[in-house]
Computed example of a mutant assay.
Amino acid sequence: MDQSEVSRMLRDAGTNALLAWLLVAGAAAVAVGNVAVGERLWALFALGVATVGAFPALARRSLRAMPPWEVLGLAALPLVVRSVGDGTVSDVTTYIAVAALALLVAVELDVFTAVEMSYSFAVFFVVVTTMAAAGIWAVVRWVADIYLGTGFVVDERALMLEFVASTVAGVGAGVVFELYFRRFARGRERLEADL
Rank of each mutant, 00 (worst) to 15 (best):
V92H: 01
D110T: 07
Y95Q: 14
A106C: 09
V123Q: 01
L104I: 08
F121E: 08
T88Y: 10
L101Q: 07
V92Y: 09
A102C: 01
S118Y: 08
V98R: 11
L104N: 05
V92L: 14
I96Y: 03
V105N: 05
V92C: 04
V111M: 06
F124V: 11
A100S: 10
V98D: 09
L109S: 01
D91K: 07
Y119Q: 13
A106V: 11
T88D: 13
D91S: 08
S118N: 12
T93N: 08
S90P: 02
A99L: 08
A122E: 10
A114M: 02
V111C: 06
L109D: 01
F124D: 06
V98I: 15
F124M: 10
G87A: 15
E116R: 15
V111T: 10
V115A: 14
V123C: 02
E108A: 10
F124R: 10
A99D: 07
V105K: 03
I96R: 03
F112T: 05
A102D: 02
E116Q: 13
V89W: 09
V123F: 01
S90K: 09
V115P: 00
V105Y: 03
E108L: 04
V92D: 03
D110M: 06
D91P: 00
L109T: 00
A100K: 00
L101H: 01
M117Y: 05
T88G: 11
L104Q: 09
A100P: 01
A102V: 02
S118G: 15
E116W: 07
A102W: 00
Y119L: 15
Y95P: 02
Y119V: 15
V98M: 14
E116F: 07
V111F: 04
G87C: 06
T93E: 11
L104M: 13
T93S: 05
D110I: 02
T88E: 15
L104V: 08
M117S: 06
D110K: 01
T88N: 10
V89S: 12
V115M: 14
A99Y: 02
I96D: 04
V92W: 10
A102H: 02
L101T: 09
V89D: 08
